[in-house]
């Protein structure tokens, strides 16, 4: 079975992110890395496609900063990579993202399963993968912690929902959002890294996808730094018992107990 997996590059999670005087977001000289949640999706795409004798293609939507994540994916062992970019495609517009991503999945040969990470650690719009599933008209299964079985047209998975563990069967094709319990992502191999560094990544435009621009629906008006935390630190000292008493007094005073 052929699988498509979606990923993106994000600034390293240790980066200090700030909005500059020009209103743009910057993260200094911190590296960009593959979105940490997507490593599980990439690993699962490799395993599921190999197990069923198919191929796995990794797709990023957006500018060339995402080549980083695509190259990492190829180095891990994904079969092919693809980027969707167009001046008229705003990946922050989730309806536009979903339309482009769905068209790409349909254009790829025989894809029956799409796998994604839980969220992007940077601009997470919270909605694009769900909307991709709806635009495809496929089943969406989120919080998947295990694929228990999969045959020609059904899939059985374990999902970790807020209330507990749920076992669900569904029809394929499907879009899966996987959690970190699902696997242990592999590290790229040395040979993989060498091969990936030479790979040419094809870029598809809206015209290649047979689409025209999606009307604007939501826009980011501005990025802002957090208001300074208006707190002064008060150290509480003494024996453990004295500290405990003083702390409880303070917490009652602050009305949080």
């Amino acid at each position: 079975m052929n699988v498509a997996v979606f990923t993106r590059s994000t600034p390293d999670t240790a980066a200090k992110v700030e909005v500059g005087a020009d209103g743009r977001v910057n993260w200094g000289d911190a590296a960009t890395v593959v979105n940490p949640w997507d490593e599980y999706a990439l690993e699962e795409a490799i395993v599921q496609s190999k197990d069923s004798g198919g191929t796995a293609t990794v797709v990023a939507v957006g500018g060339d900063m995402h080549n980083e994540a695509l190259k990492h994916s190829l180095a891990m062992g994904l079969d092919a990579a693809l980027r969707l970019e167009d001046a008229a495609l705003d990946p922050a517009n989730s309806l536009a993202y979903a339309a482009a991503a769905a068209a790409a999945v349909k254009k790829l040969d025989g894809v029956q399963l799409v796998i994604c990470g839980k969220e992007s650690v940077d601009t997470g719009t919270d909605q694009q993968i769900i909307q991709l599933a709806r635009k495809l008209g496929w089943t969406l299964l989120t919080n998947v912690s295990k694929i228990m079985s999969m045959d020609g047209d059904t899939i059985k998975v374990e999902r970790q929902i807020e209330q507990g563990k749920m076992i669900v069967t569904s029809k394929l094709p499907a879009v899966l959002v996987v959690t970190k319990e699902i696997n242990e992502p592999r590290y790229p191999s040395f040979i993989g890294i060498r091969k990936a560094s030479k790979a040419e990544i094809p870029v598809w435009s809206l015209a290649d996808l047979g689409l025209s621009a999606t009307p604007e629906s939501v826009k980011v008006a501005a990025f802002k730094n957090l208001p300074p935390r208006d707190i002064k630190l008060e150290m509480i000292t003494g024996t453990p018992e004295e500290m405990a008493k003083a702390l409880v007094d303070k917490l009652i005073e602050e009305k949080v107990l």
Partner: peptide, 26 residues
């Protein structure tokens, strides 16, 4: 219009609905 936390809450964004139709919000 709304404020959202982005970059894992390291900064905020101001977003505005510009399109037509029912406005969906979480």
């Amino acid at each position: 219009t709304a404020e959202r936390a982005v970059y894992a809450g390291k900064i905020l964004s101001d977003v505005a609905i510009t399109g037509d139709g029912t406005q969906f919000v979480t």
